[in-house]
Structure formats: C-alpha cells, structure tokens
Design a protein around this nucleic acid. Structure first.
Lengths: 208, 208, 208, 208
DNA sequence: GATGAATGAGAGTTCATTCAT
DNA sequence: TATGAATGAACTCTCATTCAT
C-alpha cells in the first residue's frame, strides 16, 4: 500500500508543482526541470507520470479547475436556505465569490487559460465546461427558486445569474489590475455590497 | 526622404507583424524569425529597430493598445449628443462597444496581456492605464452629464460607468469562449439590448 | 529444479531476444527496454542476468556466432566422403554454404560485427576466431586430404580454401545488396556452380 | 566571393568532420557536438547546413562514396593500355585496388554502410549504385576488350570481373580482421600476385 | 541600413542503470 | 528472484542575438 501511496503522492506533487510553476512563468517559460524541482522529484519522474509537457499542462490545469469549481459551488450554499434578509444573504455569497475570484489559484488559472488558448484549444473544454458554465447554472437554479417563492421577479434566471456574476466580477479585473494587485478585504465587501445593491434594484421584488 | 519614409514603413511593418505573430503564438513561442518573415524583412533588421525581443513585444503591445483605445473612445461619441431616446442611444453605443470588444485585435491584446503579465509586469502600465481606465473615465464623464441633465439618477458616475461596462462585457467572456468563438451580429445586438435594459432599470430615471 | 530450469530458460530468452533486437535496431538504437519486452521479462531482470548492456551484447553475439559456426562446419561434411564426382560434391557444399551465408542470422551477425567493431574491438575475438578462421581451417583440412589423394593439385590448401570461400561469397555481397535483398534459390545454385567451376578450373586436377 | 568560399569551406569541413566522427563512433554514438568540434564550427552551424543528423549522415556518406569510387576507377586505368605483360599489368591494378580497399576511408565507409543499413535503407542507393556496381562494370569493360583482343578467353566479362574482385578482396576481410588491422605493403603485393595468378589460371589465354 | 552566417545557452526527451519491495 | 518506480547523464535540436559584408 505504501508503494501505491507514494506513487499517488508523487503524482499529486507533480501536478501541484506543475500548476505552481506554470502559473509563475507561463507554459513556454516553465521548464520541466523547474517543475520537477518544485515537486521534489527528478525530471524523468515527471515523464514517467505524464507523457508530455503538454499533457502535464492539461492535467495540471484540469486539477486546478476542479478545485476552483468546487470551491465556488460551495460558496453558493447559503442561497439554498436564505434567511429573511435576502439582500444580506446575497451579499454574503457575493463576498465569498469575490474572495475566491481573487485568490491566487483562481487568478493563475484564468491567466493560464487566456495565455494558452491558442496553443491548447482543447484546454477550454477541460476547464470552461466544468467551470463557469456549471457555476452559472447552479446560481441560476438558486435564483429560479427565489423567483418561484416570490422573492425575485425575474422570469429568466439564466440571464439574472449571468448579470449577477457580471456585476460582481466585472469591476474586479480593473481593480486588481488583472489579478496582479491584491485588494483589501474591506474593499471586497464594498464591491459585494455595491453589486448586490444594483442587482436587487434591477431584479429584486419591490417589497412595499 | 524616401529613405526615411522606407524606414518608418519598415518600423510600422515590424510592429504590426510582431503583434500578429505574438497574437498567433504567444510571446515565448513566437520566434523573431517568424516576426521578421511576417514583416517581410530579415531578422537582423528587426534588431536594428528594436533592441530586444522584449522591447519589440512592449512596443507592439503599446501600438495595438493605442489603436484599440481610440476606437473604443470613438464609440462613445453618440453619448455626447444623445437624442430624445436615451435607451436607443445607449444601445447603439453598447452594441458598438461589444463589436469592438469581440474583434480580432481586442481579443488578441487581452490574451497577450493576460499571458505575459508575470513576465512583463510593466506592460500593464503601458496598456491598462491608457486603456480601460481612460475609457471608463470618458464614459463616466458622459454619464455625469446625463445625470446633471436629469436623465439618469446616479450620483456616482464612476460606479455607473463601471457597472455599465460590466453588464456589457461580462457575459461576453463565456459566450465567446474567452474570445475563441465568433458570435453572430444579432446575438451581439441582443446582448447590448439586455445589458442596457438592466442598466436603465437600475440607474434610469423613473419617467412617470 | 524447475526454478533452475526457469532461470536457464530466461537467460536463453534474454540472449535470443537481445540478438533479435540488436539485429533489428543496432546496438545503440536497441533499448534494454525493447530487449526485455522481446524476451518477455522486466527490465531489471535483464540486469540480474547480465551486468551491462555491453555484456549483454557480447554474450548475444557470442551465442549467435556459435550457432552460425556450427551450421557452417556441418555444411562441410560431404567433403569428408566425396563421391566419385568431386565437382558435384563441391557444388553441393558450396550451395549449402551460400544458403547459410544468406540466412537471417548470418547477415545480422555480420552487420552487427561491422557496426560495432570500433565500439567493441574485443567482439572480434569472440566471433572471428571461432568463426571464419575455424571454418577456413576445416575447409583447408578437407582440401588437403583431396590433394593428398590426388584429386586436387594444390600444394597450399589454406590458400585454396581461402579462394574457394572468396569465389563463393564474394559475389554475394553485391547481389544481395549487403544482405538486404533476398535471393532466389535457383540463383543461389547458379552461383554455387559458377564458383566451383572456376575453382576447379584453377585448382582441379586436369583429368585426362 | 570570399563569403561563398567560406561557406563552401565550412560545408566541406562539416561533411568531412561528420564522416570522420561517424566512422570513429558509429551513427548513434556520434554526437552532433563531436562533429561540430571536429569540423571546427559551432553546433548550430551544422544545423544551418544540414537539416538533420540523418541528413548529415547521408550527405557525408555520399561524399565519401564519391571519393572512394573515383579513386578505384582511376586504379583501373592501366588496363586501358596494357603492356606486353598482361599479368604484370593485372598485378599492378590488383595491388592498387587492394591498397585502396584497405585504406581508412574505404574501410570506414564499408563499416558505416553495414551498420546503418537497417536505419538508412536508402543509403544503399546513394552508395552502392554509384559504387561497386559501377566499378564492376568498368572492370568488365576492360576485360571485354582484352577478351576481344584475344588476351583473355572469357565470354562473360561481367562474371570475370566479379570473380576478379572476389579473389582479390575476399581474403582481405579475414586478413585485416574486418578492416581493423593494418596489413603490410609486402603482404598486399603477395595477395595481389596470388589473386592474379589464380585468375589467370582460370581465365587467361593459355599462351603456348 | 540591411542581410546571411555563426554561435552560446538551454529546452524537451530518452535511456541505461539502480533501489525498494 | 523479479519488478515498478526513480534517477543522472546525455543528446538532438531551437532560438535570441551578434558579426562581417
């Protein structure tokens, strides 16, 4: 068992090291050497697990995307049982999503995707399909429930979800200088509040 | 004079060729050879004009960014003299901005920026500062005027501008698969209308 | 015992697999991996039997050389008891030798020797000494007996043997394109007859 | 012109260096590094002239084969105007051929051919066709003339040529240990005399 | 000023060989 | 004993960059 365990650990270490180095240097600049060093193994060991630098890249991307997605999905949980104060719940979710959108891994993943789209057109399928799309859909589901129970007045939950995410993350890009600048937690809360405010103004039920 | 002219032309050809090739292959994959070929000159000629591959990249990026910015600024012109139908004017501007955001050069520029942020931290200053920031500011100016004349009810034109752009371009990313997929013109118009609709609902003056 | 048996079998399998692969790819191109696969064992097992790739090569060569030599020696048997028609006997032996010289293993062995002479100068001692030399000597012995009994008129059986082999195998090289082209059996017979004819004309007793 | 000259010189140096190193180490063991060093140029320069290590090998082989062939053809010249003593002329030619067959380049060429036949099946076409075949044909032509003028009694000059070469070079292989051992000049002369003697005994006109 | 030729440095990939099981 | 996994060393080939023309 320990053998298998060791092998799995090494594979994991390689994938994580690969993502780290790719994120730091970009695909082309990152050397397999560097990745091996980061993972604490020898270069050929990398090739024993992955056939290619390209394959390594794809797998590293996929693993990171999986993690990122599940974190974001988890952030939607509060919407499943919103308290009396819908706006507060939305702000809570919004803040959490913002926080996740600005963390290291998320930014790196986005950057890597953008940079290598042309070289790895198929990487999009690995990441996008199981990424934003699924998140949007999950969010739309929640919003649909809220609409059904009369707490939102949209008839197009997909659109509402899309615009919620747009209002939330759109400003992020400029403020973080495309993910290069950290942003204070309080500013993050403000952004969440602002976005929710506009969202509610546009889609919220005018409670008398 | 013709010599000087030829020199300028060559410089221009090199910059454009560079941007084309960088966009196609990314910074690291693009060879100076390829760029020289694309520009129709010999490799050392490139070095006679630019000291470095890095310098070449920066200049090519800068030139492209200038073009992109001026196009976008021009798209805001209708807002200077909006007709009676504000919504229609906004939709017109929105559509034009969307069109510009989805064209080849814009997408390539964005991709290149994302990919090389870590390698060229200073490229952001060249592009961002004279890019989205200035566009946002110009848009905010227009919106402020509209607010002053009572046609919008915001007191924070910067925020309004930011959210206008967010509602507009946020959905773009998913729909064009990060710029890799073309999008039909009619869909573009729908997106413009949808964004403006929500924007007006949130910020428009409730005309009785 | 079965263990010992299995071990011996494995050793044999490794040696044969090694020769096969070396013959197919050459020493340097042949991977120990390939050899292990051909022999149906794992790579380290090869190293359990042979210390080195080089050692493996030497042993494989030696084994093949032994086989080849014994086959050729056996082909000389008819000369021990030549019938009345000496020419016919010679042709028979000649044909058999030619056949052996053109078979797969012989050609491969020759090729391997030539290719790795510089890398394995000692391989010559393993193969040559117990190869052509011994064959030549055996043939010379037979011819000496024939001379003694008056059926050949040479006084230098070594020379006669050498020239017999030369006349026989010299044309082979060109006709088989250095062993790459198969040759029809009838052509083989013709070549045997032609060589013997000339040999007899030069060395045969002018039977009145 | 000097530029062109320099380029040609370098190309020549590379080809010669390549042949030298390939001969010394074999195709697979020879590093492009080594070849470049031998030629006195940098590694990439080799790649500027030849696309591949394989291409380099082919060209080097071809060049060497051309040289070897022309030398051997020149050795046949005396047969064009044989003096009164045909045997002497034949011995002279035979000796020269032997000498050429035992020189460094010839042996190396043969070794390289044998070693890489499987990897470079087309190399045979480059070398053989313009090699032994043409030599055999040229020799056959000379012998045909001699037969016509009544100084040989063969009716099959091709066969005679083939056997002449066989008698000459067949013993060479064993005596030089496949080209690894030098051979004294006097032994070379003896071998030439012996071969011619047998040849004349078989094909020569029985001068009364 | 523009170019063909040359190069130093370095990348990905493979392989013979060795532990640990 | 036989093997899966790991590694150090080496190799082919590429590229940004610089002379000499």
């Amino acid at each position: 068992m320990s053998t298998t365990r060791g092998r799995i650990d090494k594979r994991q270490a390689i994938l994580e090291g690969a993502f780290t180095v790719f994120a730091r240097l970009g695909y082309a600049q990152a050397g397999v050497q560097d990745i091996a060093a980061e993972a604490g193994v020898a270069k050929p060991t990398v090739y024993n697990h992955m056939t290619d630098k390209a394959t390594l890249f794809r797998h590293a991307l996929e693993a990171a995307a999986r993690t990122v997605l599940s974190e974001r999905l988890a952030a939607l949980d509060p919407l499943a049982a919103p308290g009396d104060d819908l706006t507060a719940t939305l702000e809570c979710v919004a803040y959490e999503l913002l926080r996740l959108h600005t963390d290291q891994r998320s930014c790196s993943l986005k950057r890597l995707l953008y940079s290598e789209i042309t070289t790895f057109p198929d990487a999009l399928d690995l990441v996008l399909d199981s990424g934003p799309h699924r998140l949007n859909q999950a969010l739309a589901d929640r919003l649909a429930r809220l609409a059904l129970s009369g707490r939102l007045r949209t008839t197009d939950p997909d659109l509402a979800a899309e615009q919620f995410m747009a209002l939330l993350t759109g400003p992020l890009e400029a403020r973080t200088r495309m993910g290069t600048q950290q942003i204070t937690d309080s500013e993050l809360r403000t952004m969440a509040r602002t976005a929710v405010e506009t969202f509610v103004r546009a889609w919220g039920h005018p409670e008398p």
